[in-house]
Amino acid sequence: MTKVKPSTLRLGIVEMGRLGEIALRVVAANLQAVLGIEVDFLGPHEVPENAYQAHRQQFDAGLILKHLSGCAFPKYPRILALTNLDLCIPILTYVFGEAEMGGRAAVVSGFRLRHNEDGTAVSIDRYYERLAKVALHEVAHTLSLYHCEESLCLMHFSSKVGQLDKLHILFCERCAFMLQTSLRNLAEEFASRHRKKPVKSDKQKAREARPGPSLRS
């Protein structure tokens, strides 16, 4: 298991429905620590109307992603929605989260993470840990990472919470390398797109370089 080097990628987190500030902070801290990216909170965001699937009483995660990636958050190449809705996709009865492969948006729900398969509730710490793991997994998909065969790697596909609990909060060597490559490519792309823009003032730079997640909501 290898650590990913820090990068300048900025990710914006929106809250869809009510998940609670602590949950948001835990996820943000884990994204920063494990992926080495910058994270900002962008406040609450409405649930797109078309996402509700009346016949299943669930929300289509794919439609939420489509809505999100079309939203204007110009400073954020990646957007993560955290939610308490019961998510599904057309072919699967439920998902913990969903992301656009190599795309912009990801969504993660706490709905199915609070209980075990036998229905017993889990401690709040365990719940936060699951939430962070799913968030890391989905954000990594937006960085072009595939599912991984290493059973302890964050990119291993977990269909059940029990499997999720077994994962380390780390990527295996191969996935870590892949992340590094994707993040570097993104940074280069971003730099070349913004090269012609006027130079930032020192004040601006200082503000942007401020460490830690800043609550803007």
Partner: peptide, 15 residues
């Protein structure tokens, strides 16, 4: 279409 896209998308995530 939605079934097709959904299944293709899921399988592609495994490479």
């Amino acid at each position: 279409l939605i079934v097709r896209e959904s299944l293709i998308g899921w399988l592609r995530k495994s490479g």
